[in-house]
């Protein structure tokens, strides 16, 4: 089975995150890493590939540093990487991102399964997988908490707050997985050494036949007008329980009309 895993290089959530003057996410001077939520589809791909002697290609789109995200996935065990890197891409929204990724997936070719994470840990729109399915014209099978593939059919469990559903589709398909699906492995020493020899291709927009005018900040279909830092919340009263803490809490809630 041939699997492509789409991964994203994101600013570390523990470090301060902010915006540039043009209202795009500040990606300079902030340490980045493979989005933690993208370790889950990598792990899932590796398990499927191990069971079927398939290949796992990791695909990312982003600045030069984004190669680190590919490296990490190769260290975990993926076979090869594709990095779409082009100055024109900076500031792309989900619509443009899905366009570039879809063309890259077509160029990789002969794919059974496209796996993605639940969301990126920065943009967090969760819409790119659905957009990819729309563009590729293949089934969308998203938010998988369990996944199995049998005889060309993928089957997942999708949970919402009111129901739990089992969904089936024929391959090829786009599948996004949640963070409860597995326990991602850490790269082993052997994995880290092996990753150094694995092939990584770098593609530009021209390689994909995507026109630069279709991507980037200027092509965005929505316009960010302003970005404001919220004033930090002011800390209210904090009391130490010396036997009356619960009473004090009830008192506070009553004073705010919650009782």
């Amino acid at each position: 089975m041939n699997i492509v895993v789409c991964v994203k290089y994101v600013p570390d959530a523990q470090a301060g995150r902010g915006f540039e003057a043009d209202h795009t996410t500040d990606r300079q001077g902030v340490d980045g890493l493979l989005s933690e939520l993208d370790e889950y589809p990598v792990e899932e791909a590796l398990k499927l590939a191990e069971a079927t002697e398939g290949t796992v290609t990791v695909l990312t789109m982003g600045p030069e540093d984004a190669a680190d995200a590919i490296k990490r996935a190769l260290q975990m065990g993926a076979d090869q990487g594709v990095h779409v890197c082009d100055d024109a891409i900076a500031g792309s929204d989900a619509v443009a991102t899905s366009l570039v990724l879809a063309e890259a997936i077509r160029k990789v070719g002969d794919i059974d399964l496209v796996l993605t994470g639940l969301a990126s840990t920065d943009g967090s729109m969760s819409v790119v997988p659905a957009m990819l399915a729309e563009r590729l014209g293949v089934p969308q099978v998203t938010f998988a908490s369990e996944l199995s593939v049998e005889e060309g059919t993928v089957r997942i469990r999708r949970d919402s707050d009111v129901a739990s559903e089992t969904i089936e589709a024929r391959l090829p398909a786009v599948v996004s997985v949640t963070d409860v699906i597995n326990e991602p492995r850490y790269p082993s020493f052997k994995g880290i050494m092996a990753a150094k020899k694995k092939p990584v291709e770098t593609w530009t927009l021209a390689d994909l036949g995507v026109d630069a005018s279709q991507v980037g900040l200027d092509a965005a279909w929505t316009t960010v007008e302003s970005v404001e830092a919220r004033p930090p919340r002011e800390q209210g009263e904090v009391v130490t329980d010396e036997g009356q803490g619960g009473q004090a809490l009830a008192e506070f809630l009553a004073s705010r009309k919650f009782v």
Binding site: Q235, V238, G246, R256
Partner: peptide, 26 residues
């Protein structure tokens, strides 16, 4: 606690039941 409008430093196993009982009483 940096975010709170009100906080109790204490054991939830005593603070929550006490608060719940006081709320029921009120």
């Amino acid at each position: 606690f940096e975010l709170v409008d009100f906080g109790v430093v204490g054991d939830l196993f005593t603070v929550l039941p006490q608060a719940a009982e006081e709320i029921q009483r009120r």
